[in-house]
Design a protein around this nucleic acid. Structure first.
Length: 309
RNA sequence: GGGGAGAUGGCGGAGUAGUCAAACGCACCAGACUGUAAAUCUGGCGGCUUCGGCCUACGAAGGUGCGAAUCCUUCUCUCCCCA
């Protein structure tokens, strides 16, 4: 019989962290963060890491172990998470993967095709070509080497066009031919994915409140410190950095920075939902359907019995 | 009290007789997504629709035009200046 691995996914601010901790305590689980930003030191407020107290309530993994200048990616995450999962299972405990980074989670569960990774030089070169000749030009180029991939990528989606071309240059194989060669967690373990959701308006309200709290906690100062360092490509895209940077540059005041962060976080949550909705394996727990916290339902209720036992 | 400016879709804001359900931006909704993913990109966005159209709309009411968001009259409201 395959060992169980529990996933708790959902949009930001929906309440994944607290549910995961309750669940971990109940079932003797250990939490693995599937979050592209919580891995960074010095980004505690920004990435809404669980507090020290929360972290001491159950073991947490893959949080605060990278410098802001380090790169991170779905592939690195998947590799590390898989090792952690193995270790946790060996200890006789249940791994609970918690997070909102959809691609990371998918990569972990379904795998990613083998690749040498990225090559900044190739990317830069392709970017220059796009600047000179337009993104359509690059897309046409991709059409010639990998027509199937080109079909699935919009000509305006420069990052994807570039990556597909990069794969070809680097691997001498097309993205299309590599794609089927993937194995992941789902081939080894009994994967159970739970998605948390709630009424959209309520979720947005929670996000707004959370951002207010982030400012009270000193996010401005945290960003100020971060901006003094060199940030990696990944870490510098954390929500909050560019919004607060604009405030430092006097492009607008603090209130506007706060509103911008709220807005961008709301949009992010929406994109997360779009991503997770596409995964039909997810068992959704709608917080609005019950007056109680979904934690109660998942831990004591039928959901747990039905889906995990 | 006198003079001037203006009222456009959820908001901002074009348009100044036909090709206007009304540019553009924002918000919002939906979608795509395999090494930057808290990123990147796409579509929709008055209502109804058998997808051909139909209906309701540009402060209100009248009027002139074949035809009005666009012109005229009155009214209501807002802003500014002078008293």
């Amino acid at each position: 019989m395959k060992e169980k691995v529990i996933f708790i996914v959902g949009p930001t601010a929906v309440g994944k962290t607290s549910l995961a901790i309750k669940l971990a305590k109940k079932i003797k689980g250990e939490i693995i963060s599937a979050d592209s930003m919580q891995v960074y030191k010095g980004m505690d407020i920004l990435s809404q890491k669980p507090t020290k107290r929360e972290r001491s309530a159950a073991p947490h993994h893959l949080i605060s172990f990278l410098k802001a200048s380090d790169e991170y990616s779905a592939a690195i995450f998947a590799k590390m998470a898989e090792k952690k999962i193995e270790g946790i299972i060996k200890k006789g405990k249940i791994p609970i993967v918690v997070g909102g980074s959809g691609l990371y989670i998918k990569t972990l569960i379904d795998g990613i095709f083998p690749s040498k990774g990225k090559d900044e030089k190739i990317r830069q070169n392709l970017r220059q070509i796009a600047d000179r000749n337009g993104s359509i030009f690059l897309h046409n180029k991709l059409k010639r080497v990998d027509p199937l991939a080109a079909q699935g990528i919009h000509p305006n989606d420069l990052k994807r066009v570039i990556r597909a071309l990069e794969i070809y240059e680097l691997e001498k194989k097309t993205k299309t031919s590599l794609k089927p060669k993937t194995t992941g967690l789902k081939d080894i373990y009994d994967v159970r994915i739970f998605g948390l959701n709630m009424n959209r308006g309520k979720l947005y309200e929670r996000i707004n409140k959370r951002v207010d709290l982030m400012f009270k906690k000193g996010i401005v100062n945290e960003v100020k410190k971060l901006l003094r360092k060199t940030l990696s490509v990944t870490s510098k895209q954390a929500l909050g950095i560019k919004e607060i940077e604009g405030y430092f540059n006097k492009a607008y005041d603090e209130t506007e920075a706060k509103d911008a962060l709220k807005k961008n976080t709301r949009r992010f949550a929406k994109r997360q939902l779009t991503w997770f909705r596409a995964d039909k394996r997810i068992v959704w727990l709608d917080i609005d359907k019950t007056r109680e916290a979904p934690a109660t339902r998942i831990i004591h209720g039928d959901v747990w019995k039905e889906h995990c036992l």
